[in-house]
Amino acid sequence: MTGYFAPQGGLPPQTALMTQRAVFTEAYAFIPKGCFSDIVTSYLPGWDKTRLWLIARPMTGFSETFSQYVMEVAPGGGSDSPDPEVGAEHWLFFTGGVATVTIGGVAHDLDAGGYAYIPAGTPWSLRAEGQGPARFHWLRKLYEPAPGVSSPEPIITSDQATPVRWMPDTGERWGTTRFVEPEDVRHDAHVNIVTFKPGGVIPFEETHVMEHGLYVLEGKAVYKLNQDWVEVEAGDFMWLRAYCPQACYAAGPGPFRYLLYKDVNRHAKLRGPGAFGR
């Protein structure tokens, strides 16, 4: 279970049907892989030989806590000053190529399946080192300190080095690759990988306050988003606001896996942006 889909860009031919599966609703957005074309790529100050698909950003009334980029860095490209946002923490998950990620002065080589967590305030840089582009997801969030809680440390690991934790009573059909222990309250968000084997299901409509970004790395399934059952496959992205009901049925023929973001482990804000009162 190590296949990781990455968009290649390009444009559909003029003979292609324009109708696809893209949906934007008050509860969720669904971006199919066919929307990852050249005309929606972007570039970043401070990054060279790099383009990206920006697939999630904070939006008032929608998912408000994180941004997510699908990065493509050509050989020799990268950045020595990746992000000017003060207070941002970062997660990198690699789907292809090779890059050297230097965190706090320590260099790490990461390839497909590689995972890095970079705490807020930690200097870092990235350079693509392989023969082809380095491809990875970059998720960002403003870190929320908590009284009496220390800041988390950097994490360098991989999908291959982290076992799947299967949900109880599922016959090892539904599980999560957890890169951080759930009870570690130093972390205010998780970026993990969820795996379903053929026949695996989320057996109820999950409805909760946590926001989600789900990028399908491998396989196909039908996914319940609010009131809609949607066919999803590798390369599709689902963006769920708080309280959007969700469920899943993975029919196969192979594993269905997605990279999952969710915000956790902090009090609900009662004052300030996003709160009811002042």
Rank of each mutant, 00 (worst) to 15 (best):
V194S: 13
D109Y: 00
F30I: 09
F66K: 07
K141F: 12
G130A: 06
W138A: 01
F24V: 00
M18D: 13
Q68Y: 01
L44V: 00
F93S: 03
G76F: 13
W47S: 13
G130T: 05
K49R: 11
K141V: 13
G10D: 12
P198D: 03
V70P: 01
A161S: 09
K197L: 09
P154W: 05
Y143C: 00
W239P: 01
M71Q: 01
W239N: 08
G252W: 10
L17G: 09
V201N: 08
T177M: 01
G219W: 00
T95M: 15
L240E: 10
L54N: 06
P255C: 01
W47Q: 10
H137A: 14
P123A: 07
A116C: 02
L17W: 07
P152G: 03
C244Q: 06
P245H: 12
F196L: 12
V216N: 06
C35R: 14
V73C: 14
A242F: 14
A251V: 02
A112D: 02
M71H: 01
T15F: 15
A116I: 03
I31C: 08
E231N: 07
D236K: 05
R21H: 11
I103H: 11
I31T: 14
G274F: 08
A56T: 07
A146L: 15
Y115A: 03
T25V: 07
E144K: 08
G10P: 14
R51Y: 08
S125H: 05
V40W: 02
A112K: 07
E72L: 06
E72S: 04
P58E: 05
D159K: 04
R186K: 13
G10W: 15
S42K: 11
G113I: 03
D83S: 09
L259E: 01
R165Y: 11
Q8W: 02
H267M: 10
S150R: 07
W239T: 03
E153A: 15
P147F: 09
V232Y: 06
H208D: 00
